[in-house]
Amino acid sequence: MIAVRHWGRNSVLAPICWVDIFRCRRVGRCFRHNQQKRRQRRPFTLSSPYRSEIQTSSAWWLLLPALSVLAFVGVLPLLTIFNYSFFDIFTLESRYWIGTEWYREILSSSRFFESLLRSLVFSAIILSIQIPLGVFIALLLPRDGKLSMALLMMLALPLMVPWNTVPSMWVSFLGDPAGFGGRLLAMLGIDFDYKFNALHTWILLVAMDTWHWIGLVVILCYSSLSTIPPAHYQAAAIDGASRLQVFRFVELPKMSAVLMMALLLRFMDSFMIYTEAFRVNAGGPKDATTFLSLDLGEEIAAFNYGPAAARSIIYFMIVLAIAWSFRTIMNIRRDQSLGVGQR
């Protein structure tokens, strides 16, 4: 097992080197690696030596219930809205085909790009605060014991607060001079004015969102951390690994999938933040917190079916494109860092 030999693609000895693949680091260059990769990617193959999956199309029957519910509440509405986006709609009965005019109108307005930029910046701030902080808290919590259980439960509590009262809670806590946070800020001599100071509105939104969602990141990270067997830590200690190395080579690989989930969830929800931002300052002051979804909310509230539909499709495409590229990058990086044979 220790001998790591790399046989050429055409070598007659190639078939016997698969044993070594578990230690092989030459991803993409080793013949067996490529062979196995091809097996994994290609749906119709005989079962590989490592996995004996059943090749069947009856799996679709098991997927059918889930997919039909999703088709009804997901695909059908999306198709409807895609159709609407090409019409000028007065009422749903009388509508006029206008082609891609709504799209051109939205994509040529500077307001759209300003909102897009604000949403992107907001998501970037949220992700760069919440993901590291969440990982950090999860690492600090002891793996067992009553205390960390209590802390976890406490961190999960904000997740259960209705989204439309989260802003009220924070406004009465921090924005109101009579609130505890407001009084604390006044004592520190900070004149906190979230209504008219754009920076303060942003701070309030970021603090509020972090308070609301940090529990999700912590719970996800903590739960994957607690699946690491103690033996891994002992092995790392014997090897004299530093704390950083333990994190990088023991903990991070275990968390990568869960972090992916947390990143996707947090990205989507912060990118499309609506209720919270609207309740705090309705996009103000002077449009400083007008995010993409607030523009869309305005169109829907005004019953502009056509533009609202076109806008929805554009947003959907943006989110899809970002998530897809994100996932692709993660997949490539994972394939590179892990041997493909180690699953």
């Binding site: 997927l63 999703l70 509440v73 997901g74 059908l76 509405p77 999306l78 409807t80 809205i81 609407y84 749903l92 996707l264 969830l265 990205f267 989507m268 990118f271 499309m272 609506y274 979804s293 869309l296 909310g297 829907i300 079916y305 609202a308 539909a309 929805s312 499709i313 947003y315 959907f316 989110v319 899809l320 998530a323 897809w324 996932r327």
Partner: peptide
Amino acid sequence: VFLLLIAFRITPPVVLTLPVFIL
């Protein structure tokens, strides 16, 4: 299928509100 599922999860609710109501 897996990618499709992720696509559904990240579909912003605001995007679907209008057609879901009509439907």
